[in-house]
Structures are given as C-alpha cells and as structure tokens.
Amino acid sequence: MGTIVFFIFAILAIAAASGVVTSRNIVHSAFYLALSFSGVAVLYVLMNADFLAAVQLLVYTGAVSIMVVFAVMLTLRGEVSDSNPENRKWGWGAFISVLLFAVIALVVLTNSDWRVLPSAWTSGGSAEDMSLLLLSQFMIPFEAAAVLLTVALAGAVILAKGVKENQ
C-alpha cells in the first residue's frame, strides 16, 4: 500500500517539477511548483516526518508559491503564453543536468549499502520531538535562524519598497 502511494506521489512530484521547467507559461509553472511541493510533502509523511510534511505544506505550498505568484503578477508584461522561454544554451544545461543525474544514479545503484530498507518506526518526528531537539542541542542555530528570518523580512521590505531619490 505504502509503495503504491509512494510511486503515485513521487511520480507526481517529478512530473510537476518537469512541468515547472518546461512550461512556457510562467503562471502554469508556478502552479506546477505548488503541486510538486505537495507531492514531496506526501513523501515526508511516508518517511514518518509528519511535522516536516506539515511545515512543507504551510511554508512551501502555502507561502512560497503564493509569493511567487504575486511576483509573477507584479512583473508580468507582454504575452503570458510566452512568458517563460528557454534561452539559447538550454541544450548545454540539459546535458550537464542529465550527466549529473547519471552519475548520482550510478553511485546510488551500484552501491549495495544504500539499498537500505526501512526499519521499524516506533515514534519520533512529531512536533514535540523536534521542538525538544531544537531547544536543547540546536538552540544556537535555532536562534540564528530566527534572526535570519527577521533580517530577511526587513531586507525584503526595504528592497521592495525602494529608495526614494533626493532623500
């Protein structure tokens, strides 16, 4: 059962991702992106990372996708059906990407140690476990992340607001 679900959503995520990079309409790309994020969230659930799955849905599917859509709306000009074209060097890009994938796949498949099957899962991965870890061992990175988010927020506001001349 888990296997079927896995393949459905893995394929969904990959298909949506290829939709993102091949669609010539940037609005479609943005929606494919949200779909891909949701597919990945299901993979997280299959890996017993419930909390991460929730965060994935909230942050990526919810927030990031919406922000992308807004940015698209703010900057769209010209014909929407040709808003997301490839450049002239796309062939080279495809070559390097496929090469990288081939190398990774070779390493993964020729290595028996990595064909690990899941061991029995008893508990863990809930928000409670994560928060315990975050507030003890990872306290400093946690605080740093909080600072980063604040700074990014302020930076984004300042950048998007723009600087007025003669001030």
């Binding site: 450049n87 060097k89 890009g93 390097i96 090469l99 990288l100 190398v103 070779l106």
Partner: peptide, 20 residues
C-alpha cells in the same frame, strides 16, 4: 549568469566523478 553557473556545475560534476 547562467553560463557561469553551467561552467561551475560542470566542474562540480567532474570532481564528483573523480571522487566516485
């Protein structure tokens, strides 16, 4: 920028292959 990124990543792939 994209040309730079391609060169950079091509080098990464080569190094990765050497390691692998």
């Amino acid at each position: 920028l994209q040309t730079y990124a391609m060169v950079f990543f091509f080098a990464v792939v080569v190094i990765f292959m050497v390691f692998a």
